[in-house]
Amino acid sequence: MMWRALSADWLKIRGKGLWFLVFLGPLGLTAMQGLNFGLRYDYLKEQYQADLWGGLLSNVAGFVPIALYLGGTLVCSLIANVEHQMSSWKQLLALPVSRTAVYMAKLLLCLLLLVCSCLLLSAGTLALGLLLGFGIQAIPYADILRLGFASYAGALPIIALQLWLSVSSRNQTFPVAAGITLSLLSLFSMYLSEWMPLNWPVLAWEAESPWLFIASGLLLGLLMILPGAVHFARKDVD
């Protein structure tokens, strides 16, 4: 049942700017580093000469968490807005499909789109590294793949929260404002405890034991789905 809902959602997001966003994020990050390394090529090459690829990755990684937060916020909002816009919830939920299936389909769609972004980021970074002439032998494939996905796992709790907020309120001002606020807070919350979920995307990339934060992100993300799905299944639909 969820797959049928997902296949319908797949059709509905056509021409809604979601795909544009999915491409814009990773390509924007790569382009930014292209500019950074292009302009300061000699300086940076000298600075990172021990590990050119590592230098590139750490420069990209600095922006991945906030990009995930902002991108996740917008993707959730756009997906929910497809139904809010012309009050389609009432039509959709009067169909023979369970509300849980509808909610899970939206969540899955959101997660899939962000997976695409993470893959694009890895591909973009790889291309940039090669373009800068960092050499084929030294390519750190695992790290390049981990670049997007580690932080992604750490960001899951917030993404699940954003979907819940966006689906719950017809007016998207509050959910988007909340998402942006959280993104900005995440820049400063590093000075607080490691156990702030807001920090996990950063820690999942650069902490000494990143797996701890990746696992925590996955776990709390899964837990965050629950209240959202239960609330959605019970609420009155206008």
């Binding site: 049928r4 319908a8 056509r14 009050s87 919830w89 039509q91 009067a94 169909l95 023979p96």
Partner: peptide
């Protein structure tokens, strides 16, 4: 049951056929 509640619900950016297709995929 088929239903139409209050103001029409539709996906404005999609064509009429795609609107119905989105519902058809759920109804199977």
């Amino acid at each position: 049951v088929g239903s139409l509640v209050e103001s029409p619900s539709y996906y404005g950016h999609l064509s009429a056929a795609d609107n119905l297709e989105a519902i058809r995929r759920i109804l199977d």
